[in-house]
């Protein structure tokens, strides 16, 4: 018991406390100035904005994927089910170089897209693509068990009471998936906001245009501007606390509304 607490303190608590202590060395005015500088604001806007957009895509595509995997039988279904986990398992640096190579101007996908006049690598679109990649498993894996366990009788009841399939899906099935969908969305969003490895290769990293917040932290550190790095880190940390909190509330909500069925 004591051992656990000691270890936890050494590995997690003390380092995090150090982060907050470091912030306290800044006066509120300094803190505010760092956060509202143009470059920081742009980096935060890019990180949070693109993560939100990517999480939205993950929500829609994740739902489609999970529906296909759970409800239909098609050749290669089990293989594709396993494939969903690859973004989790693939080291981020590997994903980063692979996506960059794929979407670069001469890449397999980059070349045809370039002919259409769409430039992906080294633009914000590239960041967005990388964020979509790493977010895929979250929605699929949170919704999958819920959809599998969904009581078939509810659907049959809805259908036999005269609801057409469209109504059944959107009025009966989707509402009961909402807590899981939102949880998956929040997790994908949180992961994308903090993501570093798979994004920085494809991003181009132009200040104010395609520079994500985690990269700005690294840049400030390499310039020995520890205070700047810390201030940005604290804001991002608070954001991820808020997201964990929201996810926990969602889980509780999901559990309380279940017996109603």
């Amino acid at each position: 018991m004591g051992l656990t607490l000691t270890w936890l303190s050494v590995i997690i608590l003390i380092p995090l406390a150090g982060l907050f202590l470091k912030t306290l060395e800044l006066s509120p005015a300094q803190f505010w100035e760092i956060l509202t500088s143009r470059r920081t604001l742009n980096a935060l806007r890019i990180s949070f904005g693109l993560s939100f957009a990517a999480a939205c895509v993950n929500l829609v595509m994740g739902t489609i994927i999970v529906w296909a995997l759970v409800r239909y039988r098609f050749p290669g279904r089990r293989l594709f089910d396993a494939i969903v986990d690859i973004p989790f398992a693939l080291p981020t640096a590997v994903a980063g170089v692979a996506l960059t190579q794929l979407f670069a101007q001469k890449g397999w996908l980059g070349a045809p897209l370039a002919e259409l006049g769409i430039k992906v690598a080294f633009t914000p679109i590239g960041i967005f693509i990388a964020m979509v990649f790493i977010g895929i498993p979250f929605v699929v894996r949170t919704v999958q068990p819920v959809l599998i366990d969904l009581d078939p009788e509810i659907e049959e009841a809805a259908a036999s009471l005269g609801a057409n399939r469209w109504h059944t899906v959107f009025r009966v099935i989707l509402p009961s998936l909402i807590p899981a969908l939102l949880t998956g969305f929040a997790l994908a969003f949180a992961r994308a906001v903090g993501e570093y490895g798979s994004v920085i290769f494809i991003a181009g990293n132009l200040p104010n245009v395609s520079e994500i917040a985690p990269l700005l932290i690294v840049i400030r550190l390499s310039e020995f501007r520890y205070a700047d790095a810390t201030a940005i880190a604290v804001i991002m940390l608070l954001a991820s606390f808020l997201i964990i909190f929201a996810v926990n509330r969602l889980q509780r909500w999901a559990q309380t509304r279940l017996p109603a069925h």
């Binding site: 936890l8 997690i12 995090l16 150090g18 932290i217």
Partner: peptide, 22 residues
């Protein structure tokens, strides 16, 4: 304690490195 254990999952890896630099 459980929240503390979960924390590294939701923190940006860059921040995980930063705390040790600090």
């Amino acid at each position: 304690l459980i929240t503390l254990i979960d924390l590294p999952f939701s923190v940006s890896p860059v921040i995980s490195g930063l705390v040790f630099v600090l």
